[in-house]
Structure formats: structure tokens, C-alpha cells
């Protein structure tokens, strides 16, 4: 595996890893500062800024809105993606490629353009920004991910299993639900996770539609633009924690189903 010539790659690889890891380590370190300065290494270990978050209704409200949006748009776009997958892989009709291309087209449109388009449309219609408009935006942004993943999972799943179930007396719908769906469910779950993350971290398009309530990324952005104390670091670390836990616990699932078994 490692030949002598690859020592250079090895060193460079570890340096790059360090470059990727250091900012996150610094972030957590800064959040533990007892003082108001964002210093690393922290001048002591204190959870002061974490307790402080409890009093910040701005952050809490933003987190609530972001979670509602992420959960809602994940459920909606995964369901829609599943329906698209069934239509495109289990029925014969003309123009499937075109339909899929249309559904995937938001992927190649920059976020700032999507946000701008929503903004002018809503203001043209005279609609004020609300949870509804933000939800629609997030569905547009997440649907391409879920549709793509579900279609490819269903397209590669073997039709012969479904046919075997039908030959044993299951109706087509029953065969799909009891045989194919369980088999493709890891792919569907992976798609849902992508959708959740995509919605949760969306900033650039969402910032055009926030009103007096903002999403968490927008709130954080505005905070670090104006303030220079550690609460943002504490909140960021708090968000990082479940991500790290998830990646550590579901390492195998992630490697197999989310990054194509390649890591």
C-alpha cells in the first residue's frame, strides 16, 4: 500500500487534515473561554457561554424555525421524491429523462439566484414572507437531492424480487411496499439526511426571505458580523456536537449509503 515514494503524499495528507480539523477545534476551544474574548487556547474552561445561550431568545427562536423548516421540508421532499421515483421507474411513459432533468434543474442554479427569484416573485404577488414561503423555498432546494437519490436507488434495485413477490400472489402495490421499499430504504434515509442537512444549513437563499424571524444560519451570520464574544462559538459547537455524534455512531451507514461505500 504505502510505498516509499508516497511519504510526501502522507505528510501532505496529514497537514491537510490538520488544516481541516484546526478551525473546528479552535471553534470549540473558543466557546469554552470564561472571558468575553474569542481566544484560543481558552483561558480556562467554562460553560458560561453555553448557559448564556438560554437567555438569547434570538438564537432559540432561530433554532426552532430552522428545525421546523428542516424537518418539514425533509418529510415533504422525501415523500415527493419517493413518488417521483415510483413514477419514473415503475411506469412506462414518454419523456422521463426530460422530467428528471426539470426536477434536478434547481441544482445548477446558484443559491443567490434562487433566493432573488423567490424574493421578486413574492413581492410581486404582494405576499409577505412567512413560514409558508420559506418552506416552499426549502422544498425547491431539497427536492433535487431526494428525487435523485430515490430514483437511482429504485432504478438499481432488482425488479425480479418484485416480480417474484407478484408471482407468489402479491398485488403490484403490495409487492412494491413489502419487498422493494425495505430494500431501497437505506437509500431513501440517506436522501432524507442530505435533505435535512441541506435545509438546515441553507443561508444564501433563505436570507432573502427571512422576516422578523430568521433561520439559525442567518442569525449566526448576523451575530458574527457585529459581535465579537464567544456565544456564537458556543452555539456553533452545540450544533457541531450532534453532527459529530451522528458521524461517529453511523459511520458505517454513512460510508455505505451516503458516500457510495467509498470511504
Amino acid at each position: 500500500m504505502w510505498r516509499r515514494k508516497h511519504i510526501g503524499v502522507k505528510i501532505a495528507g496529514y497537514v491537510l487534515l490538520l488544516l481541516l480539523a484546526i478551525p473546528l477545534i479552535v471553534l470549540v476551544g473558543v466557546s469554552l473561554n470564561p472571558g468575553v474574548e474569542q481566544i484560543f487556547p481558552p483561558q480556562g474552561i467554562s460553560l458560561r457561554w453555553y448557559y448564556n445561550l438560554a437567555n438569547r431568545s434570538g438564537f432559540i427562536g432561530a433554532l426552532q424555525l430552522t428545525l421546523i423548516l428542516a424537518v418539514g421540508s425533509t418529510i415533504v421532499s422525501t415523500t415527493i421524491g419517493l413518488l417521483v421515483g415510483i413514477a419514473l421507474t415503475r411506469f412506462e411513459f414518454w419523456g422521463k429523462d426530460l422530467i428528471l432533468t426539470l426536477i434536478l434543474s434547481p441544482l445548477i442554479v446558484p443559491q443567490v439566484v434562487v433566493g432573488m427569484a423567490f424574493l421578486v416573485t413574492l413581492s410581486g404577488l404582494g405576499v409577505v414572507s412567512s413560514l409558508l414561503s420559506l418552506s416552499l423555498l426549502h422544498c425547491v432546494i431539497t427536492l433535487p437531492f431526494t428525487a435523485r437519490a430515490v430514483v437511482s436507488a429504485l432504478a438499481t434495485s432488482s425488479r425480479s424480487l418484485e416480480e417474484a413477490a407478484q408471482s407468489l400472489g402479491a398485488t403490484p402495490a403490495r409487492a412494491f411496499l413489502s419487498v422493494t421499499l425495505p430494500i431501497v430504504s437505506p437509500g431513501v434515509i440517506a436522501a432524507a439526511i442530505f435533505a435535512f442537512v441541506t435545509s438546515f444549513e441553507n443561508f444564501t437563499a433563505s436570507q432573502f426571505l427571512v422576516w422578523d424571524r430568521t433561520t439559525l444560519p442567518v442569525e449566526l451570520y448576523n451575530y458574527v458580523q457585529t459581535e465579537s464574544d464567544p456565544p456564537a462559538a458556543a452555539l456553533s459547537s452545540l450544533i457541531l456536537l450532534p453532527v459529530v455524534l451522528f458521524v461517529v455512531v453511523f459511520n458505517r451507514f454513512i460510508a455505505q449509503h451516503m458516500f457510495s461505500g467509498r470511504l
Binding site: L20, L24, L27, V197, F200, E201, F203, L216, P217, L220, Y221, V224, S236, I239, L240, V243, V244, F246, V247, I254, M258, F259, L263
Partner: peptide
């Protein structure tokens, strides 16, 4: 993957 899942803002 942690990087991938962490918001750009953060």
C-alpha cells in the same frame, strides 16, 4: 463528512 454536514456559516 463532519465538514460536509456542518453549516458553511459555522
Amino acid at each position: 463528512v463532519i465538514q460536509f454536514f456542518t453549516a458553511y456559516v459555522i
